[in-house]
């Protein structure tokens, strides 16, 4: 004998629900320094490991390779290079965007890591891997120590 199975598909149920929770993330020791510099001084900072001679952007509190504590901050400038990019035409819900948005991984000379950010003041067909870009900051009164204090990166000379 075995269990009598459900044969009418209408009798197979689904239960709807959510997993709602609100989050507040602290930026951490390195993260707070990084974003406060962007907010207060419009500077993009890296953290340098003197032992491994690596500068991390975004900065870390520790060197992931040798585990030294990082306390040396380096201004890496506003200019970077498009390492790779994508052009988004739909939003997170799958709806079509009015205007496509370019997202790029931007790398900085002499630094390990990079920033994911938007590219502005250009068109998708003009963007190329390897092209130079420059950070455009929001006006200082709008900045709140967020990665969005950088409005976008724009093509640079």
């Amino acid at each position: 004998m075995s269990l009598e199975k459900i044969t009418n598909p209408l009798h197979v149920r689904h239960w709807l629900g959510d997993m709602e929770a609100d989050y507040i993330y602290t930026l951490g020791v390195a993260g707070e320094h990084f974003l406060e510099e962007i907010k207060e001084n419009g500077r993009i900072m890296g953290a340098k490991c003197p032992r491994c001679n690596i500068t991390y952007v975004p900065p870390k509190m520790y060197c992931e390779k040798c585990f030294a504590k990082l306390e040396k901050w380096v201004d890496i400038g506003k200019k970077g290079v498009v390492h790779t990019f994508t052009v988004a035409t739909i939003d997170v819900d799958g709806k079509k965007l009015e205007k496509p948005v370019i997202y790029a991984l931007i790398k900085f000379e002499g630094a390990c890591g990079g920033l994911i950010h938007k590219i502005g003041e250009t068109k998708p067909e003009k963007i190329k891997i390897g092209m130079k870009v420059e950070a455009v900051f929001k006006p200082s009164f709008e900045r709140k120590a967020s990665i969005n204090d950088i409005a976008y990166f724009k093509p640079a000379e």
Binding site: T26, V29, E32, K60, M61, F67, K69
Partner: peptide, 27 residues
């Protein structure tokens, strides 16, 4: 109840302390 460090940074502090206590390196 609430620490400023991120989870990664807390992990680092504890792990580094354990390594130092053992007299060993990450490698």
């Amino acid at each position: 109840r609430r620490l400023k460090e991120t989870g990664k940074e807390l992990s680092y502090e504890a792990a580094k302390m354990a390594l130092d206590a053992a007299g060993m390196e990450l490698r």
